[in-house]
Amino acid sequence: MPCDLMLIAYDGSENARRAVEYAGRFLAADRAVVLTAWEPMARQAARLSGLSGVVQPEWMPDDEIEDIAFADAKNINSEGVRLAKLAGLNAEARTVECTTTIWNGIVEVADELDVDIIVAGTRGATGIRALLHSSVADAVLKHCHRPVLLVPPGRTPEPKP
């Protein structure tokens, strides 16, 4: 029996593409919202430069020009919707501007839409890298109160001797 609504977190990565494929293969839903979370360029620049407050640098476009990060998010999201439709899902587009973290944006939209399940790809980090850099998918799993389908990355074939 299909669920009413699934949310697919899509960032354009190979792992996200794989998650869309698996959602179409193993899940049925009346609707599938493909979500791409994004952060404005001014906030990214401030965060990367270590500034405590968000200061708009001189090189940033004014309010009448679309933020490059938003334009990129829309393009990525369109690709995700196209892939979801190819996977047999009744897909629709959604983007969210993150004010804190990407995972928080995903959880907030899932709560707002009252989705039945969240689908996300994982980076597949192991060892110390996994300890130092938890993934967005891991944070979604830890902080949401809904079922989550985490799709691990595909294995790279070993080279033949």
Rank of each mutant, 00 (worst) to 15 (best):
R123I: 04
D62C: 07
A37F: 01
E64N: 07
D62E: 10
D67Y: 04
L48P: 13
W59A: 11
N90M: 08
R25G: 02
V115W: 00
E64A: 12
A125N: 15
D116E: 04
A37W: 00
I76Q: 02
E39Y: 03
F26G: 06
A125L: 15
D138T: 13
R31L: 08
A23G: 04
E79D: 15
L149Y: 06
A87W: 02
V115K: 02
I117V: 10
A125S: 14
V148W: 07
A139L: 15
T156I: 15
N104H: 15
T95E: 02
P157A: 10
G127M: 09
Q44D: 07
R43A: 06
G24D: 02
H145T: 10
G53Y: 12
I76D: 01
S135E: 06
A137R: 01
H143P: 06
V140H: 05
G124H: 04
L132G: 05
R47G: 10
A69V: 04
L27K: 05
W103Y: 15
K142G: 10
A42G: 07
N77I: 00
L35S: 01
R18V: 06
D63A: 12
L83Q: 02
H143M: 13
E92K: 12
I65G: 05
A29D: 03
G80H: 00
V148D: 05
E79Q: 13
A46L: 07
N75I: 09
W103I: 04
V136D: 03
I106A: 02
G88E: 03
G50Q: 08
Q56N: 14
A23T: 01
I102R: 10
L27M: 09
D67R: 05
A73E: 00
W59P: 08
M60Y: 14
S134E: 11
I102W: 11
A71P: 03
W103M: 06
T95R: 04
S134T: 11
A37R: 00
V34F: 03
K74I: 00
F26C: 11
L89Y: 03
G80D: 00
R82D: 07
R94Q: 13
